[in-house]
Design a protein around this nucleic acid. Structure first.
Lengths: 235, 235
DNA sequence: TTAATAACCTGCAATATCGCAGAAATAAAA
DNA sequence: TTTTATTTCTGCGATATTGCAGGTTATTAA
């Protein structure tokens, strides 16, 4: 089992990596844990006591909240360099989210106490975290607005565009395989509705689909359709 | 026009007040501005360049995002001691929210540069801000889930319970006057729907209403009705 | 390759939500 | 107090969304 090392890591968007030259941060980096995660494995349980913050070293993850009657709301997806586990520090709290690997994934885990020590001694790191949370808050509040005001079709288009921005396209198809159910859990509707919208978009030549694979054909037209909801920010 | 002074301020929940003994913070406090705001006045314009962070010294405020066809999504309400203006620092950004005083309100404004200076020199303050944003993010993500999964009736009840938690009740009525439209803009539905739900709740003896005034009669029953959606956190 | 499983698709009926329009009640202004 | 304006309320039809059920296709395991 290989260890992920921050100094040689290539995730330039990672907050830890960005601060890894900082002497106040450097000394702690050897104390983090590396975790290998198989596809489908849940590594954060909702309601369990926090055991720190996770970073995706390599892989893809969905972060969700479980609602009424087991219904899932996917809150975000995460890829290389991104943070998972809001409030994964501080004292005596429990996770408000669950997290599942969407493919074989390598995680960096910074336990509670380690996070606390780092944040106390590295103000620049704390500042970066603060900015990260402020940004995410902005996105989340925009998403609240979208959920209140968008139609199902618009929400599905918005979700697909988000997935495209996050994971990109490889060989004409989105660089991640999600079920219609997962898209529905992210878009805030049902799998049947997602299926209907995707079918329609295929007929309109805006999407292509072959089995589970999904690709965007005409991104401008898709963007245009939801542009009224999207003045400044994506979520 | 009176100036609000942090040292003598009684808002114990205010992040600035909490850190006002800190020598790294103290020196900056005299540089903040005090702003008087009439009821109904909009003091943050969506899309305008940021001119810092606001704190409610005394009063009540609604924070919203404007969506498609001018439809409003109220994101939060704020009272004495609370922060308004996410990302009201950093460089070259614009506000993603608008803010309106719900009654005559006194605001403390910490301009951009002042915020930047304070945060750079007071790590404890930055830490408190980080925690605030992390908490708010949690709340906002819970709200996304609720919007995706709750019925209109549940969303209205949830909104009224939030308003009750935030502003309390005075003499059997909520200590704030909101129109049905404003409740709708917060709950994520229309004013007609809010009116219908409130009418029903009156008949069921869960609420009382006299004109615009609204009061909770049976909080336990209301809480029970949405309890499945509310495992750990309010939003 | 074949069998078994899971995911996807579609029609349809039930339900929920919305928005108009007009009446009633309340609040604000003269 | 009277008038005016705003807000609240209600019925109703239009529309959007949902969830079931049954069939099809694709993926996975044997």
């Amino acid at each position: 089992m290989e260890r992920a090392i921050c100094i040689t890591c290539t995730n330039q968007n990672c907050i830890i990596k960005k601060n890894s030259q900082d002497k106040d941060v450097e000394q702690y980096l050897s104390k983090k844990h590396t975790i290998q995660c198989k596809k489908g494995q849940q590594f954060i349980l909702e309601g369990a006591p926090v055991h720190g913050l996770y970073f995706v070293n390599k892989g893809k993850v969905k972060v969700a909240k479980t609602g009424f009657q087991g219904r899932e709301q996917i809150v975000r997806f995460a890829k290389d360099g991104e943070i998972i586990g809001h409030r994964g520090f501080g004292a005596g709290e429990s996770y408000q989210i669950n997290a599942v690997a969407l493919e074989d994934t390598v995680l960096c885990n910074f336990p509670n106490e380690l996070m606390k020590d780092m944040l106390q001694h590295a103000p620049n790191l704390t500042y970066d975290f603060m900015m990260f949370y402020a940004d995410e808050l902005n996105r989340s509040e925009t998403k609240v607005k979208k959920f209140a005001q968008m139609t199902v079709r618009e929400k599905v288009i918005d979700a697909i565009l988000y997935i495209h921005r996050k994971f990109g396209q490889l060989d004409k198809y989105l660089n991640i395989q999600l079920s219609r159910k997962e898209i529905a859990d992210f878009a805030g509707t049902t799998d049947e509705q997602v299926i209907r919208v995707i079918s329609a978009l295929k007929k309109e030549n805006l999407l292509r689909a072959s089995g589970k694979k999904l690709g965007i054909v005409d991104i401008e037209l898709l963007q245009k359709e939801i542009s009224e909801h999207n003045f400044f920010l994506d979520s």
